[in-house]
């Protein structure tokens, strides 16, 4: 185990994937942005420059190219940069890649990995603060990964690049600098296995991506008040580990879901509906959703902060729930 940043772990995963599989290639070589983490990619460019293609600004074309190449056995990592650029290639991402296996009666697969940074990154304003995962979750055939820790980002990426199915892999600008222990070399974190990031008996907080960090902060505050929150991270939305989530709610009897998508039909909506449908008998009180309101994200800091789920909002909701 080595202590490293989320960004470094992601790059490490990419490096390992390229080193271990000739079929892996990268389209658009700056998945950790053009900021302070950019230099992390230098060693990847040094050792694999002929397997990195920095394309024109043509999201639709590279999204389709990834699906087409994957049909012929390639393992392309298609970096769409800020994940909201996926909207420009939406047809290829949700209507081509995930349908290939089904439409071909199981004869073909298109195991492309689409990648992008999602969420409110800070002063990104309405068009660069989006989280497409809820919309993507409505595309059958597409896997969705939302790693929240350095260890997960590397392990889930290596799993995605060996999976037989297409994946949308979402990271978050505000996660790139967080540190954590990461195993060296090749390892895979399987999709469809939730992780209890913190055990607790009083309330289950389900969160993904950056919201796991927020939930863990809230849990620390609550612990000082004698409330033990259990923080559960599904890690992937498709496949979705209902079992671990339901088991947690069975133990705690209370549910809070924290999500950076807008409220209506967001990720929290689907998780809450699933628990209500299958775990109603475990619930001692109505479930609570803490999400972005259905409002575009504004540019200026105070009006941006107002809309984003944070630890204080989670703490207040849990206090209210246990009152």
């Amino acid at each position: 185990m080595k202590q490293m940043s989320y960004a470094a772990a992601l790059v490490d995963g990419l490096y390992e994937a390229l080193a271990s599989d000739e079929k892996v290639s990268i389209v658009s070589g700056h998945p950790v942005g053009f900021g302070p983490h950019r230099a992390l990619m230098d060693r990847v460019y040094d050792d694999f420059h002929d397997r990195i293609f920095d394309p024109p600004n043509s999201e639709a074309a590279i999204a389709g190219m990834g699906a087409g190449a994957a049909m012929l056995g390639e393992r392309p990592f298609i970096n769409l940069s800020t994940s909201i650029f996926s909207y420009v290639g939406w047809s290829q991402i949700v209507n081509d890649a995930p349908n290939v296996h089904h439409m071909s009666d199981g004869m073909l697969t298109a195991p492309v990995v689409y990648y992008g940074l999602h969420g409110v990154r800070g002063n990104g304003a309405a068009q660069h603060s989006g989280s497409p995962q809820a919309m993507l979750w409505n595309a059958p055939g597409l896997q969705i990964a939302l790693p929240s820790s350095p260890s997960d980002v590397k392990g889930l990426l290596l799993w995605a690049l060996r999976s037989r199915n297409p994946t949308f892999f979402l990271t978050h600008a505000k996660l790139l600098s967080i540190e954590g222990p990461v195993a060296e070399g090749l390892y895979e974190t399987p999709f469809g296995v939730a992780e209890i990031k913190r055990a607790g008996r009083d309330v289950t907080i389900i969160a993904t991506s950056l919201m796991v960090v927020v939930a863990l902060q809230a849990a620390e505050t609550l612990a000082k008040e004698g409330v033990e929150a259990e923080v559960v991270d599904p890690r992937t939305l498709t496949p979705f580990d209902e079992k671990t989530l339901l088991a947690s709610v069975e133990r705690t009897g209370r549910l809070v879901v924290v999500d950076e998508c807008p409220l209506r039909c967001g990720v929290a909506a689907e998780i809450t509906a699933t628990i209500a449908e299958k775990g109603f008998k475990f619930l001692k009180s109505p479930p609570v959703r803490i999400t972005r309101p259905d409002v575009p994200i504004p540019f200026s800091t105070p009006i941006e902060d107002e809309l984003v789920p944070n630890a204080a909002k989670v703490v207040a909701a849990v206090r209210e729930l246990l009152r």
């Binding site: 639709a60 074309a61 999204a63 389709g64 190219m65 990834g66 699906a67 087409g68 190449a69 994957a70 049909m71 012929l72 056995g73 390639e74 392309p76 290829q92 081509d96």
Partner: peptide
Amino acid sequence: ISLALGAGYA
């Protein structure tokens, strides 16, 4: 046409 681009890439 974009899928064919991918086939060409492969």
